[in-house]
Design a protein around this nucleic acid. Structure first.
Lengths: 161, 161
DNA sequence: GTAACTGCAAAGACTTTGCAATCCC
DNA sequence: GGGATTGCAAAGTCTTTGCAGTTAC
């Protein structure tokens, strides 16, 4: 699952994140850096609980491994900074997206079986950014989810009814 | 909080919901009817846990009061049928919207303080419906959330930094 | 009659909190 | 040095599940 970016871009992105944290007056603690660095390796989508375990696996000893609460807190910070956003709930978990890796895309979700279809619609981004500007919010990100019944489930339901 | 609809419209909506349940081959059990009827009285937005308690308060005896799991299950069904959808997470809870009462509107959410600004953008609905049609999903609903920093929090952060 | 549905109680899971110790700036 | 941040362990919630009994159709 790693290797989504070549090393140069990854470094640049990492520096950008740290910069934004500094601007915001946040301290660059060892734990936060660990979370950021692992996120850069992890992939486009993640669930916090998986991330906690993944980081834990890859830390030699407990001393250098950020705790579960810290991972949660750091992800929340990264969300405020606009690098990460929740995109859907799978069962009890929340699936997050690492925005710089994903491009602007949306999900069409089947409410019966959970199947996902991804699509892009650049118009929507410009509309929502304009709305934010109009009411003087600082735009960070947006998230659109369309729910429906996928072709397969649809057939199944119509068959029944 | 009640009285969002005049009685005539409420009855019509109630019948529409029951009709859709029948079409779908669902049984109209006493518990499901109780959930639907209370939802019709409750308001535009709700959290399932509140709904459970609210219904419980208003049931004379335990016998005629749908259980917590049944409320959860019924809300999930109503979501599949397109009458209800989750619109945001507040802390650990999910806030739902009773779609027939709300019109097509979206939320601009402040990630610092949680302040909400509501707006409408009819264009977006037509875009997403078209996407669903194109890939042969049965469209049920969609949900757009824009995240940012509200003017107040923005000022506060800029003051700090 | 029978498949669908409910209620119960408990489990399961994710997420948050309080507070003392620690660390960055 | 001092305030921000962490870790620990535990609590707190929301949500789901299994199963025996019940019910709508």
């Amino acid at each position: 699952m790693p290797k989504h970016l070549d090393p140069a871009k990854k470094l640049k992105l990492r520096e950008e994140i740290l910069q934004r944290m500094r601007e915001r007056g946040l301290k660059l603690t060892a734990s936060r850096l660990k979370v950021v660095d692992h996120l850069l390796e992890y992939g486009k989508h993640f669930e916090i609980e998986d991330l906690v375990l993944w980081i834990r696996e890859r830390c030699k000893n407990r001393r250098e491994c950020p705790s579960r609460p810290t991972v949660y807190r750091t992800v929340k910070l990264l969300e405020e900074l606009g690098f990460v956003k929740p995109v859907l709930k799978q069962g009890t978990r929340t699936v997050y997206e690492f925005i710089p890796l994903t491009g602007e895309h949306y999900h069409l979700l089947c409410l019966k079986c959970g199947r996902l279809y991804e699509f892009e619609e650049p118009t929507i981004a410009s509309i929502v950014k304009e709305v934010a500007r109009r009411v003087d919010y600082k735009y960070i990100h947006h998230h659109l989810e369309v729910c429906g019944i996928c072709p397969d489930c649809r057939r199944e339901l119509e068959g029944e009814g």
